[in-house]
Amino acid sequence: MLGYILRRILAVIPVMLLVAVFVFLLLRLTPGDPAAIIAGDMATPAQLERIREAMGLNQPLHIQFVTWLGRLMQGDLGVSLISNTPVSAMIADRMGPTFAIAILTILMSVAMAVPMGVLAAWKHRSGADYAVMTFSVLGFSVPVFVIGYLFILIFSLKLGWFPVQGYTPVGSGLGAFLSNAFLPALTLSTIYIALIARMTRANMLEVLGEDYIRTARAKGAPERTVLFRHALKNAAVPILTVIGSGFALLIGGVVVTETVFNIPGIGRLTVDAILARDYPVIQAMILLTSFLYVLVNLLIDLSYSFFDPRIRY
């Protein structure tokens, strides 16, 4: 068991290293002078030189990489070209709202999607099944910002149930937090729910066709027992996997949702960085979210053995 955990952790290192290489090369291999790309067309030679200096672009590529990686290991993500503050400090500053909303989203999504998927699979080809599938395909098809604006239009502007935009930290009271965070989380949830419900349904359908489900029924087990005791635990691993890989969707969604709801999180930070061509911030965000993605999926990998005793080695 310990060996398994260790091997999984070790296997993650090359992936993280490759991510770092990709991100590093992204700027350096772009055709043209990286400094000019970052500074924009109107930059003076002095500005260009300053950027080259700041990012170490004058050195050979491998030296650049080693220096860059070394700094990265120490948590140095570079300095913003616009505000001249360390990127890590900027991100730390903005992390709170994003994490709060992301966690709320995951909780809401799993709580709704898994029962939906189970129901759809159990009542295969029924009205409930079609309703879940319709919701799911809609969730994949309507852009997250359209959903966001639609929710604002209906729940805030027409019904007045929630404030239109803005953010209140959890520290200021759960009610205040929720009144601001609920709509963004619901918006973010739609695609996540669509994904998880679809995967749950597909895997439950597959599991429900297995021999051991027939055995359970032959034992005289009622449907509730068959579904939750026998089937769902067997379907758990692929469902967990999709929750993990859907994490990438969530990150993309956060960037958009924070823009729509005007939330001062790291998504908003990223969008501002794009508009200002603040490349160090964009690069740091890519690195950070990728590492987060890898870590989340590592944790999910490790949790498999909890659901499936066959995964121990």
Binding site: V19, F22, A248, I251, G252, Q283, Y293, V294
Partner: peptide, 17 residues
């Protein structure tokens, strides 16, 4: 590694560059 990079952010960076 490529899949670990959130696609929207990767696309943003590529277009930005």
């Amino acid at each position: 590694a490529l899949m670990a990079i959130p696609s929207i952010l990767l696309a943003i960076a590529l277009v930005a560059l």
